[in-house]
Amino acid sequence: MLRKLDQRLNELIAAVYPEERKRPGYARLAKEISERTGGAISGTYLWELATGRKRNVTLEQLDVLAEFFGVPPGYFLDDDVAERVNAQLALAAALRDTRVRNLALRAEGLSPASLDALLTMVNEARKFQNLSTDEDPDHPTTTER
């Protein structure tokens, strides 16, 4: 059940502190967590969780981590919840880029055919740059809706 705790914790840390050079150390992060949530967690214990050396976390500690990172506690326990949260985190990360945000905002109001054409161009550009072209099955890139 907690075999992916370290991975999920590290994904949350990276989402909150996207610039690796500006990420706090575990002691400072533990202090921030305690100050914001009132929950107690040590820097050493946080490091052990993030590196997979410890997995014996209490539900209370999971609640503290979930509160600090703004995710449901189920994020740490349920693959479906983690998948949904990670999709939201990926969207938030993409929207940090002003150009991505401007592209999305400027596309508002375009016809379905125009949006499909833009999606096709973006997918082709991603292929050209050898990037993933994972498409959202709920939003096909063709006008067959």
Score class of each variant (00 low, 15 high):
L118Q: 06
G74V: 09
L119V: 10
A90W: 00
V81F: 04
L46V: 11
A40S: 14
L9M: 09
Y26S: 12
R126G: 04
E67L: 14
Y26V: 09
A66T: 01
L131Y: 12
K22P: 01
V85W: 01
A82K: 04
A125T: 06
A90Q: 09
E83F: 00
D138T: 10
Q7K: 10
P140W: 13
D78E: 05
D116R: 15
V71R: 05
R99T: 08
A30F: 15
T37H: 08
A40T: 13
S42N: 04
D97P: 00
R21Q: 14
L115S: 03
A87C: 09
V85T: 04
F69R: 05
D63A: 06
L62K: 02
D134A: 15
R106F: 00
Q7F: 11
D63H: 11
P137T: 05
Y45A: 14
G43E: 03
L49V: 14
V81D: 00
N123W: 00
H139M: 15
L119E: 10
A66R: 02
D6T: 09
E83C: 01
A92G: 01
P18T: 05
D80S: 03
Q129G: 05
I13K: 07
L9H: 12
I33A: 07
L89N: 03
L119C: 11
Y26W: 15
L115Y: 04
Y26P: 11
K127C: 04
E11H: 12
Q7L: 04
V16D: 14
N10Q: 11
R106N: 07
T51E: 07
P24L: 04
G74A: 07
A40L: 08
A27R: 15
P72A: 02
K4T: 13
A113D: 06
R55F: 12
L95I: 06
D97K: 06
L95D: 01
F76P: 01
P18Q: 03
P24H: 08
A30H: 10
R23T: 07
D79F: 01
D63W: 03
V16I: 13
T58L: 00
R101D: 09
G25A: 11
G52L: 10
